[in-house]
């Protein structure tokens, strides 16, 4: 450092300056994180207890045992239910993405009354919850001869997800530049080629949003599996967990139920960890585009 010259003062960013406002903000954020994370910690801590341990769940990590996990794993027939859940979720999400993008493409591009009508036709599916019309839906499936199998709920998941997914994709489609498709058209690309090679890759952020939202809902849902499935061997994971819910005669086995919750969430956590880079890139790309 040359003599006579002052050290350059480093200017702190505004968020690093400890003003009362910043301190209050940090305290609020930490409090919010504690409120959100504490139930997860309690669930995980309780799942590590033996099934008969009835001490307060707020006493965290007082015991480390895999007995609850073993009981949940065996009682639920976990491997079969995991396969059922995985195939149902993956198959439904794949069909939703394919059908919704193909439906949203003309809705987002064609400026006619028919396209507008189709848009509102799909959106109208959001108004009425499917639980209200489950009786006629069940009658329709029965009269169509569709058997009640472990994958029958897929039909309901796909149809109930289409309104929101079409809404999501058509909105995103309208933001995509038409010039890219026009350039592909000039180069001789057919409609199918334009959709698959030009439009579909550009929909990646919306596809990832759809996969995350619908995939999570389908994985955690037990309404349709309970309505359409009768055999225990065909249950999905959420339905299998219900056997640990109790009543006044047979109190709930909370530790086993919490272990079952962790086992049910584990595949999603693994998938997210494996694909988090793609998820974050997709969401970030969408944010930049927006």
């Amino acid at each position: 450092m040359a003599l006579g010259k002052k050290k350059e003062e480093r200017v702190k960013p505004s968020y690093m300056k400890l003003t009362p406002k910043t301190v209050l903000l940090y305290v609020a954020i930490i409090l919010f994180c504690v409120i959100v994370i504490s139930p997860l910690v309690i669930v995980f801590s309780s799942s590590l207890r033996t099934p008969g341990n009835q001490t307060s769940p707020l006493a965290l990590f007082i015991e480390f045992s895999g007995a609850s996990y073993a009981k949940a794993f065996n009682s639920m027939n976990y491997p079969m239910e995991l396969i059922n859940s995985f195939v149902t979720t993956a198959g439904s999400v794949l069909c939703i993405v394919i059908f919704a993008t193909m439906a949203a493409y003309p809705i987002g591009r064609i400026k006619t009354k028919l396209a507008r009508f189709l848009y509102f036709f799909f959106i109208s599916g959001l108004i009425i919850p499917s639980q209200m019309v489950i009786v006629p839906i069940a009658q329709t499936l029965n009269r169509l001869g569709i058997p009640n199998t472990r994958f029958t709920p897929m039909i309901m998941f796909i149809t109930c997800s289409l309104p929101f997914s079409v809404f999501l994709f058509s909105g995103f489609m309208k933001g995509l530049p038409v010039e890219i498709e026009e350039a592909a058209y000039i180069d001789g690309a057919s409609l199918g080629k334009r959709f698959t090679t030009v439009v579909f890759p550009l929909l990646q952020p919306a596809i990832i949003s759809c996969v995350i939202t619908q995939g999570l809902w389908i994985w955690n849902d037990y309404f349709y599996p309970m309505v359409f499935i009768s055999k225990k061997a065909q249950y999905s994971l959420p339905v299998g967990m219900l056997q640990f819910l109790g009543d006044k005669e047979n109190p709930a086995q909370w530790n086993v139920l919490f272990a079952a919750c962790v086992l049910c969430a584990l595949p999603l956590i693994v998938v997210f960890l494996a694909l988090q880079k793609q998820f974050v890139n997709g969401i970030a790309a969408g944010a930049v585009k927006g």
Binding site: I134, V135, I137, A138, Q139, V227
Partner: peptide, 9 residues
């Protein structure tokens, strides 16, 4: 819902 849909069926 399961009870009602099975009766409806």
């Amino acid at each position: 819902s399961r009870f009602m849909s099975d009766i409806g069926n």
